[in-house]
Design a binder for these strands. Structure first.
Lengths: 107, 107
DNA sequence: ATCTAGTGTCGCAAACATACGACATTGCTT
DNA sequence: AAGCAATGTCGTATGTTTGCGACACTAGAT
């Protein structure tokens, strides 16, 4: 049923990025990490109104797409933003929206 | 089950925007409209590898969030980008990512 | 060696998204 | 008025996401 693969790879990649940031919990995690620079997984689930399991899954999605990065520190895991990948995505995003934004139309 | 409403309204709004642009078909529609400036619904479904029904639904989602705008012209409907709303969303997006992007972290 | 704390993974249920054919509606055209 | 063309909406099937409890794993503490 899924026809997503029929589109340009560049559109698919941007769509994947958009999907990852399309949940407020994941945006909240990014924001929290931007504030704290780095913190352990438990801090994040304490901070959010979600169970630890659910937060763990959201973290996994952010990890899978490369926006964050987790470093093992004994028992704990320190998460931090991955600036390089974030920059790459923002570049793609701007690249896409530049012509869209330029096509000034008055509705 | 949905706990999205437990988060800041600003995060929810950005998440809604991200969700709408999280499908390659909808990105392709935006791109197409940026190129053609304005075109009728049928042109879009001819252009995309999807049925007319499905395209109509994607158009509805873009319309609902305000990114595009359809004007009735007899039997046809002319769609065009809604620059004002696009700018508003891009502003929100940049506003959110500015601090995230600034928190330079080397992974 | 046992206990505990911090995490991840599995399996499930509920909700939501995607895709489409069939049908309804509306406005031109003859 | 009858027919056709452009579009939207409904119903439905299938796939994906969200959320969580129960379980498993591992590293340090006792």
């Amino acid at each position: 049923m899924n026809k997503a693969e029929k589109f340009d790879e560049s559109l698919q990649e941007l769509a994947r990025f958009a999907k990852v940031i399309s949940h407020p919990a994941r945006l909240a995690i990014l924001k929290y990490l931007a504030d704290t620079k780095s913190c352990i997984s438990g801090d994040i689930s304490d901070y959010l109104p979600l169970s630890r399991t659910t937060v763990s899954q959201h973290l996994k999605e952010l990890r899978d797409v490369g926006l964050i990065h987790g470093e093992i520190d004994g028992l704990k895991i320190n998460y931090c933003l991955c600036s390089e990948e974030i920059e790459r995505f923002l570049g793609m995003f701007e690249n896409f929206f530049e012509p869209v934004s330029k096509a000034k139309i008055i509705c």
